[in-house]
Amino acid sequence: MGIEIDMKGKAALVTGAASGLGRATAVKLAQAGADLCIVDVNADALAETAAMLDGVQVLTHVANLAEPEACKGAVAAAVAKFGRLDALCNIAGIVKFANSHEMAQSDYLLTIAVNLNAPFFLSQAAIPHLLESNGAIVNCASSAALIGEAYAAAYCASKAGILNMTKSMAMEYSRKPIRINAVAPGGMITNIANGMTMPEGVEYDLIQRFSGLRGQVEVDDVADLFALLASPAGRSYHGACISIDAGITAG
């Protein structure tokens, strides 16, 4: 029997929605009937995403989620528009590869701010509304949360933090009507991946250790998983971190 993902009459907030996984997840949720608040720092690309979302109400909200107040503002805008919030998909993220001893302080702080702090402050603002709607938080972790990846110490730290933050919040709200889960994708072909640069003197055999044998993960496959966990069809998931990485973390 197939899984029916029905989000009609519900509202979801998706970050990082201007491209890649965030855009694909917004499309999947719109297809399931959800009204959407889509958030990103890239206004032009966010408008392109909005044009793909047919048959539902869409609010585009441009914000720099590295700022805690911007996180709170995004949630407030969604609730003001739709009068409710049923799902928060924390997908916005960045990665900057560097030799750890050479990484710029600004790059480190930005990585933590976008990948770890923003999901916390978004969740903090969203939880009161999600408790009212029996809603869900779905965080974007990574295979980098589960294994060490050379030249990505800041990114790995941020994603490991997301994984344990997910589990900690799930325990905290284990007796409350909210579901909190994470998805841990492997490498995908997205704007983040396309814009990556490696530091000088990189040892590519170390990178191959976390590249996997089966190639890149399909973005749409990961988006399907986000939509499932954001919807009532994911009712039995709580405190889970689901790997979808084509075997990278298998051993």
Rank of each mutant, 00 (worst) to 15 (best):
M52S: 13
L131C: 06
N191A: 15
A136N: 02
D44V: 15
V222T: 11
I178R: 11
N115A: 10
G195I: 01
A87T: 01
L85F: 12
R175M: 10
G239L: 04
A70I: 01
I38V: 12
I147G: 03
P185V: 08
F120T: 06
S168G: 13
K8I: 10
N191S: 14
G16R: 03
P68V: 05
I3C: 09
V75E: 11
L21E: 04
S231R: 09
R235Y: 12
S158T: 05
I3E: 07
A47E: 15
D205R: 11
P232G: 10
F121Q: 03
A184C: 15
M52G: 07
S168L: 05
L53W: 08
A11I: 02
E218I: 11
A51P: 07
G9L: 02
E4A: 14
T111M: 12
C37V: 13
K8P: 02
L46F: 04
S133G: 01
L59R: 14
Q124K: 14
V41T: 13
R179M: 05
L110I: 00
T25F: 01
A152D: 03
F82L: 06
N194T: 11
G93K: 00
D221S: 10
A157C: 12
P128S: 08
G161I: 05
A63G: 05
G251S: 09
L88K: 00
A153P: 03
N194F: 07
G135T: 08
A32S: 15
A12N: 09
G215F: 04
P185W: 02
T60D: 12
E69I: 00
M1F: 13
G33T: 08
H238A: 10
S142E: 06
G234F: 02
N194D: 12
L228S: 03
A160C: 13
E203M: 08
L46V: 03
V41N: 14
L206P: 04
Y108G: 01
M52R: 13
A230R: 02
A32R: 02
A150K: 11
A80V: 04
V14Q: 08
A70F: 04
S211C: 07
N139R: 06
V75H: 09
P68T: 02
A230M: 07
A76L: 05
V58G: 04
N90H: 00
M171I: 11
A223H: 05
Q216I: 13
K159W: 01
G161W: 03
C241M: 14
G161K: 04
G201K: 04
G93Q: 05
I91C: 12
G247S: 06
Y204K: 11
S174L: 08
L131V: 07
A63Y: 07
R175P: 00
Q57A: 15
C71K: 05
A240Q: 15
A227G: 09
G186P: 06
M52H: 05
Y237Q: 07
S211A: 15
A126D: 01
A113D: 12
E48Y: 05
C156D: 15
A230E: 00
S106L: 09
A11F: 03
A74Y: 07
L206T: 10
H61L: 09
R179K: 13
A182C: 10
G148T: 09
M196K: 14
E200P: 12
A160R: 09
G2V: 11
L228Y: 03
A246F: 03
L65R: 05
A227Q: 02
Q57V: 04
E48G: 14
L131F: 07
G93R: 00
P68R: 06
